[in-house]
Simulated scan of single mutants.
Amino acid sequence: MAMEIGQKVKICRLRDRLSGQMVEQIKKNPVGTIAEYKMTDGSGVGVIVKFDSGLATWFFEDEIEVVN
């Protein structure tokens, strides 16, 4: 997947690391904008996604899909 800062993405999978409150906010509006890259586990790269609500958190590549 080619991910670029500023690109709109939809969250298609949520992992257990998020709080219940964050999950509910994301489910209401799962589309956000890639704000920056994040090293995840020393070998992987994730992205920090910022939502219109002001919430921002990071995701692995397999948790997001590009919105056209």
Rank of each mutant, 00 (worst) to 15 (best):
I5W: 12
M22I: 10
I64G: 06
K27F: 00
G54R: 13
G32M: 03
F59P: 05
M3R: 12
N68D: 05
A35L: 11
L18Y: 15
G46E: 02
A35R: 15
V47R: 08
V47K: 08
C12W: 00
V67F: 01
E4L: 10
G46K: 03
I5C: 11
Q25N: 05
A56F: 04
S43Y: 11
Q7D: 13
I26S: 02
E4M: 09
K38I: 11
R17G: 00
K27N: 10
M22E: 15
T57S: 06
Q25G: 00
G6S: 08
S19V: 04
N29F: 03
K28M: 09
D41L: 06
D52I: 13
V9Q: 07
A56N: 09
L55M: 15
F51C: 10
E63L: 00
V49L: 08
T40L: 14
E65W: 00
V31H: 01
I11C: 06
A2R: 13
G54C: 11
E61Q: 14
I34L: 04
M3C: 05
G44D: 11
D41R: 11
A2H: 09
K10G: 08
E4H: 13
V31A: 01
A35G: 03
F60L: 10
W58F: 15
V9E: 08
M1G: 15
R13M: 10
G46H: 01
L14N: 11
G20H: 04
M1R: 14
I48Q: 04
D16G: 08
Q21K: 15
A35N: 13
K8P: 10
K28L: 11
G42V: 06
I11G: 06
V67S: 01
V45Q: 14
K8R: 15
E63S: 10
G54A: 14
V66L: 02
I48L: 04
D62R: 06
E65K: 14
G42Q: 06
P30A: 04
E4N: 13
I48K: 06
V66P: 00
G20Q: 09
G42W: 04
I34N: 05
I11H: 06
A35S: 14
K10W: 01
K50A: 14
V45S: 05
S19T: 14
S53P: 08
N29H: 10
E61W: 02
D62G: 02
E4A: 12
L14D: 09
R15F: 13
E24T: 13
V49T: 12
I48D: 04
K28P: 01
M3K: 07
V23N: 03
S19D: 09
L18A: 11
V47Q: 08
G42H: 03
A56G: 05
M39L: 11
M39G: 10
G46V: 03
K50N: 05
A2F: 03
E24V: 07
A2W: 00
F59T: 12
V45Y: 08
D62H: 12
R17E: 12
E65M: 12
M39P: 05
G46M: 01
F60D: 13
N68H: 01
E63D: 07
L55S: 14
D41T: 12
E36V: 00
F60E: 15
G44H: 14
N29V: 02
G20A: 09
K50Y: 02
G20W: 01
I48T: 11
Q25L: 08
K27P: 00
R15V: 11
I11E: 05
L14M: 15
E63T: 02
N68G: 04
F60P: 00
F59V: 13
R17T: 09
